[in-house]
C-alpha cells in the first residue's frame, strides 16, 4: 500500500507568550494551550492533498511523547489522517531519539514518503527530519515549498522546491524519502465538528520506546533557561527630517 508517514510534535501554541520558570529550570507550561507544531500541520496537509490526488492510499500520523499528546493525534485524525501511532515516552526526547523511533516506525510501515515539519517552534532544533533520512540512508528534501510526485523509470520520484538562502532550489529525490515542510507549502485545513466525532473511532495505537528497542538517551543537559535581555525603549521622531537627524546623531549616516 502506498503510505505516507507524518511525524507531529505537541508544542506550546504559537500564540502563547512564553514565560521562563522563576528557578530557570524550564518554561511555564501549566495551564498553557498546546497544539500540533504548525510546520507539522503543514506536513499532514500535504500528505492529505497527495492522497486526495491519488498519490497515496493511506496517511499515518505518529508522535513520540507523553500520554498528553493524544489530543493532538486526535486532531490529526480529525484533519483526515487514517490512523495514529503514539510512541509513549516521558521526559526529554532529543531529535536523535525521535529519529530512531521514527526509523522503527518506517521499518514497520514501509512508507513511500515521510513528511515532517522543518522545525518545532519550541526548541527550534530543525534536526529530526534530516536525522531520520541519515539513519534510513535515504534522500532528504528539507524546507519544501512545493512537492510533486513523479512516476518514473526505475521507481517513483519526488521533485521538491526548497526555500534556501539563495532563493528557490529544486531537487529530485528517489522515493522513499524524507521531506520537511516550510511555511509556504500549503495552508492547512480547518477541522470540522463532524470530523472530530469521526476521529474518535479511528485507530490510535499505543507503542513505547522500549518496545521499539530505542534507548531514551539524553546527550544534552539543559542547564538553565533565561529570558533574553530586553531592548531599551527608543525615542519617537515626528517626520523624515527628524529621523535623518536622529540617525546622524547616532553616526549612522
Amino acid at each position: 500500500m502506498k503510505r505516507i508517514l507524518i511525524g507531529i510534535k505537541r508544542v506550546v501554541d504559537y500564540n502563547v507568550r512564553i514565560r521562563v520558570k522563576p528557578d530557570g529550570s524550564g518554561v511555564i507550561t501549566d495551564g498553557v494551550k498546546m497544539s500540533i507544531n504548525p510546520f507539522d500541520e503543514i506536513a499532514l496537509e500535504e500528505a492529505l492533498r497527495i492522497k486526495e490526488r491519488g498519490g497515496a492510499e493511506e496517511v499515518v500520523v505518529a508522535t513520540v511523547g507523553p500520554a498528553d499528546c493524544q489530543p493532538q493525534l486526535r486532531t490529526a485524525l480529525a484533519m483526515g489522517a487514517d490512523r495514529a501511532l503514539h510512541v509513549q515516552a516521558d521526559g526529554i526526547i532529543e531529535p536523535l531519539v525521535a529519529a530512531r523511533a521514527l526509523l522503527k516506525l518506517v521499518e514497520r510501515e514501509q512508507p513511500l514518503l515521510v513528511i515532517l515539519g522543518k522545525q518545532a517552534i519550541d526548541d527550534d532544533n530543525s534536526q529530526t527530519g534530516q536525522m531520520l533520512a541519515a539513519l534510513w540512508n535515504r534522500p532528504q528534501a528539507t524546507f519544501a515549498s512545493k512537492v510533486e510526485l513523479i512516476a518514473g523509470e526505475g521507481g517513483q520520484k519526488a521533485r521538491v522546491t526548497r526555500e534556501v538562502d539563495a532563493g528557490l532550489e529544486t531537487i529530485e529525490v528517489d522515493l522513499p524519502a524524507v521531506i520537511t515542510t516550510d511555511l509556504r507549502l500549503n495552508e492547512p485545513r480547518y477541522v470540522k465538528l463532524p470530523d472530530i466525532m469521526k476521529a474518535k473511532k479511528k485507530p490510535l495505537e499505543a507503542l513505547s520506546l522500549g518496545a521499539l528497542g530505542v534507548e531514551q538517551q539524553q546527550r544534552l543537559k539543559l542547564v538553565r533557561f533565561e529570558a533574553p535581555p530586553q531592548r531599551q525603549k527608543g525615542v519617537r521622531v515626528k517626520d523624515a527630517a527628524e529621523l535623518v537627524d536622529a540617525l546622524k546623531k547616532k553616526g549612522l549616516l
Binding site: 512564553i18 518554561v27 517552534i121 543537559k221 538553565r224 533565561e226
Partner: peptide
Amino acid sequence: YAGNVILTV
C-alpha cells in the same frame, strides 16, 4: 521559542 528564551546546554 523564537528567541524568547535563552537555553544553556
